[in-house]
Nucleic acid binder design. Structure first.
Length: 513
RNA sequence: UCCUCCUUAGCUCAGUUGGUUAGAGCAUCUGACUGUUAAUCAGAGGGUCUCCCGUUCAAGUCGGGAAGGGGGAGCCA
């Protein structure tokens, strides 16, 4: 059926080889009769014929194959009864080998599983040299697995991490779709270098060997470049998102973002995925409400749809925590933590209130902070954010109304501020263990205030005239935020290093795979 | 970029005040066993102690440098 359709649709792509290939597939019933292990395991029904395909995790006792096909972190036990298969075949059932097994699904005779497949036929689809395959049926360190990132998806941990990542990504779209948001695609290549969100990767087709066309002053003449100007990889889709919000009311972006910062931490990547909703007719409080609802929704989705994966990750984390000294262990397990976040309100305080809490806390008085809090106006350090989230409130915190001096040009100036204490309608959401997971604000919709601010911060208005047009033609109060998708995945999976929640991490000095 | 720790078998790690042939568990291989759950039992193979330079009669061990990695900080999401 499938193949006929293919032939009818586009006969030009069919060659002798593809026909031979398709025939071979049909003869072997390779795809159409396969059952995924997840489907097979969710029901206790037994006594029916089935074909499964997957990769061998372990082969015990010359009889029992633990087979995984990535549909779930549970394995299917395949029984190859003694004496029914050639020794030559059994020798090839090594860890990592890919096989097709056909037989009867029966109630398991063993204790570890409800059903098992009693094989009548086993076919090796792909051998795996046991002496060379790096994954062994034993615990591996995350550092080691990071070095073989192309194979780590075949482990329980990374299988679960990336199934949860998928679930969260799906939930992102579901949440916004239900709310009538338009998924808006902002460009990956941008010309605006005025935003100041971070160092950018340059995009160019000009030669790097010194022969690039030059201006009279010796600088490179980007008018000769592909786009006729200097271009970069995007650091944020926000400004373009604002344009769309001024037409669709509610939009969101969800795509890759690039920062060329030399950041070497467990929570930064050079290429990461960001979710950026932008809403017309929203103020800061609406913005915070949406962000909180959003975070709870996607976490709830993962809890409801990826129980097995989260159970496994929770157990993994618990074992990891046992290795730590008592004082460094978290008070809640992963599942309790997620349930707590879903079922409790985030704490909401202003920057000014946070400064008072920090200034008066014992930790500060005993000078245990590396940077002591004395005066209003200083930026909060990681240690302060962690104190508020992990020690003082013990829950996610939404911090609002930061001093204008430490925030971006597009954030809305608060009205009626005390003298010398001008703030903006900014908000950060801080999560336990992760730190800043969301950064957002109500945007400055007043053209005069915005251009005044840009001037003060030396941002060239002519480069952003398209952006300022939104304020010239039907400006309106609006707000939005950016959420680092990998940090969300970190929070939900309990993985400590951001490089372990994106399939192929990019960071300084590393772009492998 | 800064601070700090680490680098010994395929993996995870021991390795004493510098001293003869560098060890263990797991993995791999061989054999036994056969309803196992990271099977078990017995045996075997497996090392440029990350690299370079130095100190010393002698360096896995001490000193200097480089590379790679972990954790923390800054930048932020």
């Amino acid at each position: 059926m499938q193949f006929n359709t293919l032939i009818e649709c586009n006969p030009s792509i069919i060659t002798v080889n593809t026909i031979a290939y398709i025939c071979s597939l049909k003869n072997r019933h390779m795809f159409n009769k396969r059952i995924k292990i997840k489907e097979l395991l969710v029901s206790d029904v037994a006594n029916y014929q089935a074909t499964v395909m997957g990769w061998v995790r372990t082969f015990r006792n010359n009889q029992f194959i633990a087979l995984n096909d990535g549909s779930t972190n549970s394995n299917l036990q395949i029984v190859a009864e003694l004496g029914k298969f050639d020794d030559a075949l059994l020798k090839r059932l090594t860890t990592g080998a890919c096989i097709k097994a056909t037989g009867e699904i029966i109630a398991s005779l063993g204790k570890g599983q409800k059903v098992e497949l009693k094989a009548t036929d086993i076919e090796i689809l792909g051998d795996s040299d046991a002496e060379k395959f790096p994954l062994q049926p034993k615990k591996h360190s995350l550092e080691f697995l990071r070095e073989i990132a192309h194979l780590r998806f075949r482990t329980n941990t990374f299988g679960s991490v990336f199934r949860v990542r998928h679930a969260l990504a799906f939930a992102v779209h579901e949440f916004f779709n239900k709310k009538g948001f338009v998924y808006f695609h902002t460009p990956i290549i941008t010309a605006s270098d005025a935003e100041g969100a971070g160092e950018m990767f340059r995009v160019t087709t000009l030669p790097m060997d010194g022969t690039a066309p030059k201006n009279e002053d010796g600088s490179i003449n980007y008018k000769e470049d592909f786009f006729g100007r200097s271009t970069n990889l995007t650091v944020s889709g926000q400004l373009e998102g604002e344009l769309a919000a001024m037409a669709f009311s509610d939009i969101y972006t969800f795509g890759p973002t690039f920062r060329a910062e030399n950041s070497n931490t467990t929570r930064h990547l050079a290429e990461f995925w960001m979710i950026e909703p932008e809403m017309a007719f929203h103020d800061l409080e609406d913005n915070a409400n949406l962000a909180e609802e959003f975070i709870k929704y996607v976490i709830k989705y993962a809890i409801d749809n990826n129980k097995d994966d989260l159970d496994f990750l929770a157990q993994r984390l618990e074992e990891e925590e046992k290795q730590k000294p008592q004082q460094d262990r978290s008070e809640m397990g992963l599942l309790d933590k997620l349930a707590f976040v879903v079922n409790n309100n985030f704490e909401r305080i202003t920057y000014s209130e946070a400064i008072e809490i920090l200034r008066d806390c014992n930790h500060n008085k005993k000078k245990k902070f590396q940077y002591l809090i004395n005066d209003w106006g200083v930026d909060l350090q990681s240690e302060h954010e962690r104190y508020l989230v992990e020690k003082h409130f013990k829950k996610p915190v939404i911090l609002t109304n930061y001093p204008a001096a430490i925030k971006s040009f597009y954030m809305r100036m608060d009205d009626n501020c005390a003298p010398g204490r001008q703030t903006v309608s900014a908000m950060d959401i801080l999560a336990p263990g992760i730190g800043e997971i969301v950064g957002g604000s109500q945007r400055e919709e007043r053209l005069d205030k915005l251009t005044e601010r840009m001037e003060a911060m030396h941002i060239p208005a002519e480069e952003l005239s398209w952006y300022l047009d939104t304020r010239r033609f039907g400006s309106c109060p609006h707000a939005g935020f950016g959420l680092g998708f990998e940090r969300l995945v970190q929070f939900v999976t309990g993985m400590g290093n951001i490089r372990d929640v994106i399939p192929f991490p990019r960071f300084p000095k590393s772009a492998e795979f």
